[in-house]
Design a protein around this nucleic acid. Sequence first.
DNA 1: ACCTGAACACCGTTCAAGT
DNA 2: ACCTGAACACCGTTCAAGT
Lengths: 199, 199
Amino acid sequence: MAQKDGYHHGDLRAALLREGHALLAERGSDAFSLNELARRVGVSTAAPYRHFPDRDHLIDAIADDGYVIFGDALIAAVAGASDEGAAVCGILLAYLDFAVEHAAYFSVMFRDRGERPNEVGAGTFMTFADAIVAAQASGHLDPSADPRALGRALWAGVHGAAVLEASGGFVKLGLDVPHEQLVEEIVGLYLRSPAVAVR
Amino acid sequence: MAQKDGYHHGDLRAALLREGHALLAERGSDAFSLNELARRVGVSTAAPYRHFPDRDHLIDAIADDGYVIFGDALIAAVAGASDEGAAVCGILLAYLDFAVEHAAYFSVMFRDRGERPNEVGAGTFMTFADAIVAAQASGHLDPSADPRALGRALWAGVHGAAVLEASGGFVKLGLDVPHEQLVEEIVGLYLRSPAVAVR
DNA sequence: ACCTGAACACCGTTCAAGT
DNA sequence: ACCTGAACACCGTTCAAGT
């Protein structure tokens, strides 16, 4: 909280990530400024370069923090489900909840990373892929379906709904609806679809 | 092509939109620079401000060009369909095609516009909404369903698939697939779902 | 009416120097 | 080992002035 006098608070890296997230929430990822962040944390504009190679890597690190929270939410959804079908539905619900509750993280998690790898994000998706396979094994999802095709369909539907709700797309189109109802529609769509068939 | 000598090519506004789109395709929307665009077109950095109030409005204008192409593609899909059910499927297909064939436009069409209104985009969506209502009337879509709920579900699914394919999200997750197959999966999902039920 | 030239505050990034 | 101070090229934007 209160910074040390001449030299600085023991962990500049953590401070940059914490305040960086706050700045992201205020300004959006386009207007996110590294110099402003440095001023805010109380260091010179060159200081962040001791901890991150450039602006993109710093934003990636913030996104990784988001993926950790996101991954934990998906794991918790699976753990709290009564069966394998409910686990898949729980993941869809957790996905939509995360997008609105952690909009700043979400806005930055699906940026184009170019050459930079994204291990944290890829690890998160494993939870989703595993839940699909498990639901196929238990018969809640069609066992004869290609699990990768199921992954694409489910991920696309829930991701599109999350993006459109979090970025105001539904509002813009006059399709806005309370969050709970949207969740029910999206989850319900897959619940009742024989192509995906959560039973 | 060749610019006039002292004073400039009759239509700077059109040149900015045309070269702006090319620059967008090269650099991405984050790194899109107004000064670089001005140099490229061969005018001073102040010149674009005679035609657009600021950088955001110029990008919005490029996005509007995209919406026109997008809207025409949706209309053509409806016109070329054999019945109202095929029209909805055709729109989904045209949506996915547009996202990959016009990735630069697509990347900028769903930015947060803040206070700036988006009439062109809203108009485009009407084609989609009309196709849904028509398919309900003809019995290709469930007539008892809320058309706005159908709009949300279909839009979310196809938009998510488009975003994930165009931004490399599927590739990142090891879920990449040829474009034609993805199209068939997404359209097929809705074709066979009783919740949405394209018959 | 449409564009230039020059300026302003700001940005990302680098690097020699300080402790 | 970690940070500062000062600099560089660049950016978005403004405005008086030119034709």
